[in-house]
């Protein structure tokens, strides 16, 4: 008996099947629709205002571009892998993974790859052109951006891993990644600074969208503070360590799929 709940994960895995070139083609179509959607959204908002909580039109395009890069990387490796992992818990095939002589966390995190998602990341080039900031600054700024982006990715990855580890207790969890995608897709395309404090806290520490998107984008728009940089690297370390511990604790709960 399907309903959106059941379909979404199956759909997601179906999406990964099929001939790779066709997937790329669809990836391009999806990325194009996504790009058009976001540019239109920004246009509509900036028809009404010149600044959204201190962010200019160009800044926002940079932010959306960063978001595209991050979703591309997440969608290419972590999302499909974590989905496969959740499915393998449900089907009991996680046993096979555990018997391999490789760190199970690593294997679970990178076990499947959706190459078409590179289109999302690669396509973000458009955003740079549109934002008019391309070529504005290179060198240290870009290096800082890349480092912050990596730190942000570590945090999002840790968050996904913790979510996925819940599957050791609650077997039916296939949809949690879709929910993550909805949250990340909606909240991540806007600067964290416009949200009211309570929501900002959630989007910063619970679902680390702020660190994955807003702060790296600030590196490019020049709104970065030293405190934020330090906080980002420190938290990335904390998140990674904590998620590692949580994973090892959770894996002890694994009983195999008895059903």
């Amino acid at each position: 008996m399907p309903s959106p709940l059941k379909i979404a994960p199956t759909f997601a895995s179906a999406y990964r099947t099929g001939p790779i070139p066709r997937r790329f083609f669809l990836g391009v179509v999806n990325a194009a629709v996504q790009f058009a959607t976001q540019m239109l959204a920004i246009t509509i908002v900036f028809n009404q205002t010149e600044s959204l909580g201190g962010w200019s039109r160009e800044d926002l395009i940079v932010l959306v571009g960063v978001h595209a890069i991050v979703s591309g990387i997440l969608g290419m490796i972590f999302s499909p892998s974590i989905s496969s992992f959740l499915e393998s818990i449900r089907l009991g095939t996680f046993d096979f993974l555990l018997t391999k002589p490789v760190d199970a966390q690593l294997l679970a995190s990178v076990q499947s790859v959706a190459p078409q998602s590179t289109v999302d990341g690669g396509g973000s080039g458009h955003y740079w052109l549109w934002s008019g900031t391309a070529g504005a600054g290179f060198g240290l700024v870009v290096l800082m951006f890349i480092l912050l982006l990596l730190a942000g990715l570590c945090m999002v990855y840790s968050f996904m891993l913790v979510l996925a580890s819940m599957a050791f207790w609650f077997v039916k969890l296939d949809n949690i990644m879709n929910i993550f995608n909805v949250m990340f897709g909606n909240a991540g395309t806007w600067p964290i600074t416009i949200f009211p404090a309570w929501l900002r806290g959630m989007l910063t520490f619970i679902i680390p969208i702020a660190f994955a998107v807003t702060i790296p984008a600030q590196a490019l728009t020049g709104a970065l503070t030293v405190g934020n940089v330090a906080l980002t690297f420190a938290l990335a370390a904390v998140f990674l360590t904590a998620s590692r511990f949580f994973w090892r604790f959770a894996i002890r709960q694994y009983t195999g799929a008895s059903a």
Binding site: P19, I20, P21, R22, F24, F25
Partner: peptide
């Protein structure tokens, strides 16, 4: 039916 490879994929479109 299509041969493997990116070029063939583009042609097959």
């Amino acid at each position: 039916e299509r041969e493997a490879g990116v070029k063939a994929a583009v042609v097959s479109l």
